Amino acid sequence: MMKETLVVIKIGGNIIEDTVTLEAILDSFANLKGPKILVHGGGKKATELGNKLGITTTMVNGRRVTTSESLELAVMVYAGLVNKNIVAQLQGKGCDALGLSGADANVVTAKKRRVKEINFGYVGDVSKVNSQVISKFLYANISPVFCALSHDGHGQLLNTNADTIAAEIASSMSKDFEVTLFYCFEKKGVLKNIDEPDSVIKNITKESYKELLAANTISEGMLPKIDNCFYALYNKVSKVCIGNLHMIGGKEKLFTTISL
């Protein structure tokens, strides 16, 4: 028996900051038929608010160091301001959405990252996604909207990279669904030249990725995202793409597909 299809879309901070683009992607999401999940970041908004409050943001290799202060800020921004605005907009578009952190209904548990060379603070590495609970929402025609927060099962919220949350959720749901994972941001795809918006690499395989890495072709900030793409594919996600909002509705033919 064929599995039902499921679309998982992750949107980044630059899209969230751009009200026109955000509305357009939420329109596309609301109009998708069948089960669907939205995952969002919000780091840019958290940084902006942190600056106003005097909370310094520290990034290491594209990853956010999370102090107790910045965790409180992340919870306010990710699970509050950003998540509820997105849910309200989707309801206005006729899409019954439910805003969730990893702690809600115990959907995403994680372990606090061990200190090695760097202490990332209250950052969580995902240990389990409760796919059964998520499936219940989907079968009830409710579209989950996940922010980038997990929990440790012992009362502690943890900050977890939104790209990673999307890959982990897509991977877990692939047991019961045929999953397509879209990483949607402001550019058309992974670029050969960051200054040329149409220099999209249409397909990246694990072999061509090694060559691109050796040649330093891909910008450093894109590497964790591509690593998450391969992680999802290794965990039976059917298709993974990176591009702008138009790839979802089929209007844009120029985007990056990641494949094994």
Rank of each mutant, 00 (worst) to 15 (best):
V77E: 06
V77N: 09
V77S: 09
A79H: 05
G80H: 06
V82M: 04
N83I: 07
A88E: 09
Q89Y: 11
Q89G: 09
Q89S: 12
L90Q: 05
L90H: 05
L90C: 06
G92I: 08
K93S: 13
K93G: 11
G94C: 09
C95Q: 07
C95I: 11
D96F: 15
A97W: 00
A97Y: 01
A97S: 05
A97V: 01
L100S: 02
L100P: 14
L100A: 04
S101H: 03
A103K: 09
N106W: 05
N106G: 13
V107T: 14
V108K: 00
V108Q: 00
V108D: 00
A110K: 00
K111H: 15
K112A: 13
K112V: 13
E117R: 09
E117S: 15
I118A: 10
F120Q: 03
G121V: 14
Y122I: 08
G124F: 01
G124M: 09
G124L: 06
D125F: 12
V126R: 03
N130T: 14
S131L: 03
Q132I: 10
V133R: 06
I134A: 06
S135Y: 11
K136D: 15
Y139I: 13
A140M: 14
P144N: 07
V145S: 06
F146M: 02
F146Y: 01
C147M: 13
S150I: 10
D152G: 14
D152P: 09
D152I: 06
Q156G: 10
Q156V: 08
L157R: 01
L158I: 15
N159T: 14
N159W: 13
A162K: 02
A162C: 08
T164I: 02
I165W: 03
A166S: 05
S174I: 06
E178M: 04
V179E: 08
T180W: 15
L181D: 00
F182N: 06
Y183D: 07
